[in-house]
Design a protein around this nucleic acid. Structure first.
Length: 343
DNA sequence: AATCCGGGGTG
DNA sequence: CACCCAGGATT
């Protein structure tokens, strides 16, 4: 039987992970782990998870967290929207003050909690027999049942199969066993079919073609304005392009950096526009560039140095001491720029 | 149902 | 550089 094979394999081979410790088997800690694990590898998450629950060991203590504190802990992990949704969700829970009902349907109402996380939490904590499907479990099912990955109906097919296979008891261990199987055996690239507990029913048996989709990387370009007066730096707090509440130098709109695009002209025009928009007319110094990869495009940032004689008042920016900035949450992009300007 | 979200690590 | 990773929200 499918479930027995999978579970039997799991009891022997399961991974030791922080969020699987007994002390971490409560709603708050499982929730944090699942949000962090979204689109992020286990090895990356572990140190962030430990830092997070050390700072806020319980949900009640997490209620007191400020958004910027959460972002600071999150700094470097990416997808900062997750931290923002975490903040929204805990504010909701705090103000409701009703006991949290751990069921997939109720959890789904929380910001940042969708089909996967809601089912994973209630399966792990309550053994709710709901279909837990993430990218890895999907890969396992696609291979075992020989589904065509490019099929438009793939999502529906996977869900149907998953529902049929979900056990009425022990779904928590069952879904985690599938995750471990996907990670340790049915790996994306080199699956280790020799040790697979369900090899006997697998329709693919390791013979699958790695899909080769040539994705063209969209390249964009922008200008960062490192503007300072003594030990104070100009910070954009209304930047709509980057996630709000993360600190960043003023950054121009992103433009597509196609071929035949003259970066020097772009730099001059962008700086001049920015100057006139802010009623400035002073020389600037080109510092250098950094390249940063976002999830769906690549960004080159040209960095300019602007030294001001006074701390002029800017409409959408605010002044911050260098020492203060070091304590604020910033993205990896901003860290790269800061390193370049030796800030 | 498709698309966006403006990441980061690994080989 | 290509590919992977414990998805969710928006339209």
């Amino acid at each position: 039987m499918w479930q027995k094979k999978i579970l039997g394999w799991y009891y022997i081979n399961k991974r030791t992970l922080p969020w699987r410790l007994k002390k971490n088997q409560n709603f708050y800690r499982i929730w944090i782990s699942e949000v962090m694990l979204q689109q992020t590898q286990v090895s990356v998450v572990i140190p962030y998870y430990k830092k997070f629950i050390t700072k806020w060991p319980t949900l009640e203590l997490f209620y007191k967290a400020e958004l910027e504190e959460i972002l600071k802990i999150w700094q470097g992990m990416g997808y900062y929207k997750r931290a923002q949704n975490l903040f929204k969700a805990k504010e909701l829970l705090k103000n409701r003050q009703e006991k949290i009902v751990i069921s997939s349907n109720d959890l789904k109402k929380l910001p940042g909690v969708g089909d996967y996380i809601s089912c994973a939490i209630s399966a792990i904590l309550k053994d709710e027999p709901c279909a837990v499907i993430d990218g890895n479990i999907k890969r396992v099912l696609i291979r075992v049942f020989g589904l065509k990955n490019n099929d438009k109906l793939i999502k529906k097919q996977v869900k149907e199969i998953s529902k049929k296979l979900t056990p009425l008891s022990e779904n928590g261990n069952y879904c985690q066993s599938l995750m471990d199987l996907a990670n340790l055996v049915c790996k994306a690239k080199k699956p280790n079919c020799q040790i697979c507990p369900v090899f006997y029913v697998c329709q693919t048996k390791g013979k699958f073609e790695s899909k080769k989709t040539i994705k063209k990387i969209c390249k964009k370009i922008s200008v960062a304005f490192y503007t300072y007066n003594k030990d104070s730096i100009l910070i954009d707090k209304t930047n709509n392009n980057l996630l709000q509440s993360l600190y960043c130098f003023p950054l121009s709109d992103f433009r597509e950096n196609k071929e035949n695009f003259i970066e020097e002209d772009f730099l001059n025009k962008t700086v001049n526009d920015w100057m006139s928009k802010n009623n400035l007319q002073i020389p600037y110094q080109y510092i250098g560039e950094i390249v940063h990869k976002f999830s769906h495009f690549q960004l080159k940032v040209l960095i300019v140095n602007i030294r001001l004689k006074n701390k002029f008042k800017f409409k959408n920016y605010k002044w911050l001491k260098k020492i203060e900035l070091s304590e604020k949450p910033v993205s990896s992009l901003m860290l790269k720029i800061m390193k370049k300007v030796e800030c």
